[in-house]
Simulated scan of single mutants.
Amino acid sequence: MKIISYKKIILILMCMSMLSLLGCTDNKILKSNKNQVSNKVHKINNKISNFLGFPIYLDPRAGKVAYSTITEDDYFIYYCSENGINRVDKKTGEYKLILKCKNTGNLILSDRYIFFVVENGSKDCCILRVDKDGKNLLKLVDKKNVPERGYCIELSLYDDEIYIRVIGKVYSFNMSSYNIRLLCEDADSFQIHNGYMYYIDHGEKTFTIYKRNLNNLKDQIFLGKGISMPQSDIYDNFLWAGGDLYYSTRVPWKIHKYSEGKSVLINSTKNNYVSDIVEYKGQAYFVISDGDDTYRIKKYSSKDNAVFEVAELKDYYGGLRMVNGYAYYYGKDYKNQYIKLNE
């Protein structure tokens, strides 16, 4: 039996796409503009994408895409590119550049808005908001609000506040009052959960997870010893997902789940290390290195109380985003990479 190669399958499907277009070239389509024709091609390509298993919906019209910005809601996929902010309809595959703007990044969504950062070349933090259809652009934060010089490294939303990390400092910006507060001067990573700020410090290198009251800004040790350069109980990374805290410790590398006041070991690696912990659809995913430039994405299932491998990566340099069944990340030399999740 003759086996048709992968490339031939792609060629056959592309030909089918073109034939489908030729069969529909009535006067209306002939008079339509290039975008209308391109979107028709894209709808067909979206079906091919589902068959072949790779994301054709990253439309070439967008230009160079920043994979670390790819995100989604129930209906659309959004991402930043060299041309601005782009949107793709999940159902039809229709593509649209909704906001033309250079140097965009750090894109996050609320129910109604898109929040993003513009790197204006002067290393000042500049955060903007726009409706999900690209209308009503509004600047929220710039160098007048945040005196710290440096790009905005991290953005998050909680209630009516935007939380911003610039270098090691964390600020909160209230979208009703436009008031801004300095919450922390030394955070390597942070997350807002149930009205508290959880963070790991950087300068003191205590490798401790702190819980900070956002009203009086007082700390309590949540996990760890709170002393500089500890020899044990080294907390490396953490993430709240689905109401539980997942965190990694070293050395050796271990992954734990903290729930209802108790920590449970869910994964242990002797010679490997935990590179990242991310959340996708309320579940915790871990990027674990094999020590030979091979990385594995593993998922913890609360239902099964077990860890499952969902993807193998050739190399991994960070920036992991999981959207619509795919993992997007930076590979070697920070080149954009993606892989379909096996789940």
Rank of each mutant, 00 (worst) to 15 (best):
residue 121 G to D: 10
residue 155 L to Y: 06
residue 153 I to A: 06
residue 182 L to K: 13
residue 158 Y to S: 14
residue 173 F to D: 07
residue 130 V to Y: 10
residue 28 K to L: 08
residue 275 S to A: 13
residue 7 K to A: 09
residue 256 H to N: 12
residue 252 P to G: 10
residue 262 K to A: 15
residue 112 R to F: 13
residue 322 M to W: 00
residue 321 R to Y: 08
residue 305 N to P: 11
residue 287 V to K: 05
residue 305 N to G: 09
residue 239 L to M: 05
residue 204 E to A: 11
residue 99 L to A: 03
residue 239 L to S: 00
residue 340 K to V: 05
residue 57 Y to W: 15
residue 196 Y to K: 14
residue 25 T to W: 01
residue 45 N to E: 01
residue 96 K to W: 09
residue 257 K to P: 01
residue 106 N to L: 08
residue 292 D to G: 02
residue 293 D to Y: 15
residue 287 V to F: 04
residue 184 C to M: 15
residue 127 I to F: 07
residue 26 D to E: 08
residue 197 M to W: 07
residue 130 V to L: 12
residue 240 W to G: 03
residue 311 A to Q: 11
residue 150 G to I: 03
residue 55 P to C: 06
residue 18 M to T: 13
residue 265 L to R: 08
residue 11 L to H: 02
residue 32 S to H: 13
residue 187 A to P: 07
residue 96 K to T: 05
residue 109 L to A: 06
residue 282 G to F: 12
residue 186 D to W: 15
residue 86 N to H: 01
residue 60 P to C: 12
residue 164 I to R: 10
residue 167 I to D: 13
residue 19 L to W: 02
residue 203 G to W: 09
residue 123 K to S: 12
residue 153 I to Y: 04
residue 228 S to K: 10
residue 62 A to Y: 10
residue 322 M to D: 01
residue 273 Y to A: 00
residue 289 S to Q: 07
residue 98 I to N: 09
residue 100 K to A: 12
residue 210 Y to G: 03
residue 225 K to A: 15
residue 133 D to C: 05
residue 92 T to M: 12
residue 134 G to V: 05
residue 106 N to A: 11
residue 157 L to E: 00
residue 249 T to L: 00
residue 158 Y to N: 14
residue 189 S to V: 07
residue 17 S to C: 13
residue 93 G to A: 03
residue 190 F to I: 09
residue 89 D to K: 05
residue 138 L to N: 15
residue 170 V to D: 14
residue 238 F to A: 08
residue 237 N to Q: 06
residue 305 N to S: 13
residue 37 V to I: 14
residue 99 L to R: 02
residue 247 Y to F: 15
residue 261 G to M: 04
residue 274 V to T: 04
residue 195 G to Y: 00
residue 323 V to T: 13
residue 63 G to K: 01
residue 111 D to E: 15
residue 3 I to V: 15
residue 102 K to F: 02
residue 166 V to N: 06
residue 184 C to P: 07
residue 240 W to R: 05
residue 183 L to D: 01
residue 120 N to V: 04
residue 46 N to K: 01
residue 313 L to P: 03
residue 182 L to A: 15
residue 258 Y to A: 08
residue 92 T to D: 01
residue 296 R to T: 11
residue 90 K to C: 10
residue 162 I to A: 06
residue 137 L to N: 04
residue 294 T to V: 08
residue 337 Q to L: 00
residue 154 E to V: 03
residue 224 G to E: 09
residue 332 K to A: 10
residue 41 V to T: 09
residue 170 V to F: 04
residue 36 Q to V: 11
residue 274 V to M: 03
residue 284 A to T: 02
residue 36 Q to G: 06
residue 92 T to R: 03
residue 322 M to I: 07
residue 196 Y to M: 13
residue 186 D to T: 14
residue 14 M to A: 14
residue 112 R to T: 12
residue 105 G to L: 06
residue 317 Y to F: 06
residue 129 R to I: 10
residue 283 Q to F: 07
residue 150 G to C: 04
residue 193 H to E: 07
residue 178 Y to T: 14
residue 233 D to C: 06
residue 222 F to V: 02
residue 122 S to G: 04
residue 222 F to L: 02
residue 83 N to S: 14
residue 257 K to D: 00
